[in-house]
């Protein structure tokens, strides 16, 4: 991230042959860094930037990748997550992209990473000062669905006229009896700017408040960058008589037994069978390695072993896997 490391990379051209370090040219990275500095200086404000074409389509994380490419240096360790998982297509491809173009170390361990690029989740493990969390943003404008005019939206931000956002929450309560917005839940940053936290579940909203790591947001299609500096006030909007609440589950993680994580529902068969598992795959795996057990961890391991021909995962105790057939 420092200039020293950027210079070093420019001359030795580490990574893929024929490409500059971390894919983008140095001028572009400087431009994006300037935008990031402005975004950090005005928390929550959307800074326009000259978004570049990336070698993958809009919507796949081009904004987050440009931010990551601009701040990454030789000494950085990168973790990429998609919906909490390290092993989904988007995460695997972006991780490999930077491993090839920047030759940086990659990891799945949140605590070991200096930069975490994420789509749709904040890691369950706490992040610390000095780390950077980069979000991929599909739609940076929280008012867009309510106010289609860009000029009007910008005026509303400039004059802090955010009553309209409250109208969308009102509509939720009128229709569903509670605030039914469950992701992309609007927040006020530093008591000034209304901000879309990207499509993270509202479960993760409280984590953004007073977060020790720097949070950067990059929207590739819309060409906007915004940021939350460390230890900044982030408040989710609500009503006095309908306070902000996060999702809760009646069950715990079926694999690691965690009670306080964001759970994904996994359909097991076509007879209504289902299980809940942590969406953060690294967190869940670490807990299992530490010996935590959920209700299905044994049969899940057996089923996995059966599915891959008992190949590369140690079977726990060989319990019957009937429930998957």
């Amino acid at each position: 991230m420092t200039t020293a490391s950027a210079e070093k990379t420019a001359e030795n051209g580490a990574g893929e042959e024929g490409y500059n370090f971390a894919y983008l040219d140095e001028q572009t990275k400087r431009m994006i860094r300037r935008c990031i500095l402005k975004a950090v200086a005005v928390p929550g404000y959307q800074v326009p930037f000259g978004g570049r074409e990336m070698p993958l389509p809009y919507g796949w994380g081009t904004g987050g990748m440009q931010v990551t490419a601009s701040i990454i240096g030789h000494d950085d360790t990168l973790k990429v997550i998609d919906q909490g998982a390290d092993d989904t297509t988007n995460a695997v491809n972006i991780r490999r992209f930077f491993a090839r173009t920047a030759a940086v170390d990659t990891t799945e361990v949140t605590a070991e990473a200096s930069i975490v690029q994420t789509r749709h989740r904040v890691p369950e493990d706490p992040m610390t000062e000095g780390q950077i969390l980069v979000y991929q943003v599909p739609q940076p404008e929280p008012l867009r669905k309510l106010e289609p005019r860009e000029i009007e939206c910008r005026k509303m931000h400039a004059y802090k006229e955010y009553g309209l956002m409250q109208v969308s929450l009102y509509e939720d309560i009128a229709r569903f009896g509670e605030i039914a917005t469950s992701y992309s839940y609007p927040v006020m940053v530093n008591d000034r700017y209304l901000m879309s936290p990207t499509p993270i579940p509202k479960f993760d909203n409280p984590k953004m408040h007073d977060f020790p790591a720097l949070q950067l947001f990059g929207a590739g299609r819309e060409k906007r960058i915004y940021a939350i500096p460390p230890f900044t006030k982030v408040k989710s909007l609500d009503f006095d008589d309908h306070p902000f609440e996060v999702q809760q589950w009646e069950e715990n993680c079926a694999l690691c037994g965690a009670e306080d994580t964001f759970l994904d529902e996994v359909i097991l068969d076509d007879r209504g069978g289902k299980m809940y598992v942590c969406s953060d795959s690294h967190y869940c795996a670490r807990r299992r390695a530490e010996g935590h057990r959920g209700t299905l961890s044994d049969s899940a391991a057996a089923a996995y072993a059966a599915a891959v021909g008992a190949a590369d995962r140690p079977s726990e105790d060989g319990e019957s896997a009937e429930w998957v057939t």
Binding site: G163, V167, A174, D238, D241
Partner: peptide, 21 residues
């Protein structure tokens, strides 16, 4: 696209009303 109640309430929320009831 906003309900009748939301249309009427918008001005109230714009001047700071934050109590749904």
């Amino acid at each position: 696209g906003v309900s009748a109640g939301g249309n009427v309430g918008e001005r109230l929320m714009a001047v700071g009303a934050r109590h749904y009831g």
